[in-house]
């Protein structure tokens, strides 16, 4: 697949985090950090992305893509991590961590089943630099996340 299905939105950071959740379920306390990527916490139906910034109020840009198979490695990101999880509904939404409105359009990743997810993060340092210059600033789209799902066996 050359062009994956995708959705993107800016979403408010809450508790230093945001989530991409299967809209059919998902519990945050079940989520554990991925090997080598403690900022990527996953459990079935939920992906929690931790900001690299200390900002208490900012709106990162999040893009979620659904692939048929593992996409090629995407360079140019500060951090990358991978995990495997089960989606019980198959449709995900980008959400503020503490709950709220789905940002952007929900994305149909695929049928219920097991998926690999690769997460990318960048821009946290730029957020902190911006806030050092202007502590009252509310950065929009400076920190960025990319989440890529594809189905795996099992």
């Amino acid at each position: 697949m050359t062009h994956p299905r995708s959705t993107e939105a800016e979403v408010v950071i809450d508790e230093g985090r945001l989530t991409v959740e299967d809209l059919a379920g998902g519990w945050a306390v079940a989520a554990g950090p991925s090997a080598g990527a403690p900022w990527l916490l996953t459990a079935d139906d939920i992906v929690i992305l931790v900001s690299a910034s200390d900002a208490l109020l900012q709106y990162p840009a999040v893009r979620v893509e659904a692939w048929d198979r593992a996409p090629a490695a995407d360079e140019g990101w500060t951090n990358t991590g991978e995990a495997v999880l089960r989606l019980s509904g198959g449709t995900v939404g980008i959400l503020p961590f503490g709950g709220g409105e789905v940002a952007g359009e929900p994305l149909v990743v695929g049928p219920p089943g097991r998926y690999a997810v690769r997460a990318h993060r960048t821009g946290g340092e730029q957020v902190d630099a911006l806030l050092r210059d202007d502590p009252e600033a509310v950065p929009h789209g400076v920190e960025r996340f990319l989440l890529q799902f594809w189905p795996v066996a099992g």
């Binding site: 508790e15 985090r17 519990w27 945050a28 306390v29 961590f97 709950g99």
Partner: peptide, 15 residues
């Protein structure tokens, strides 16, 4: 521990 506390709160709201 702060992250764990936030996770509990998120789940409490929903559950």
């Amino acid at each position: 521990q702060n992250i764990a506390g936030g996770n509990q709160l998120k789940d409490f709201y929903k559950r």
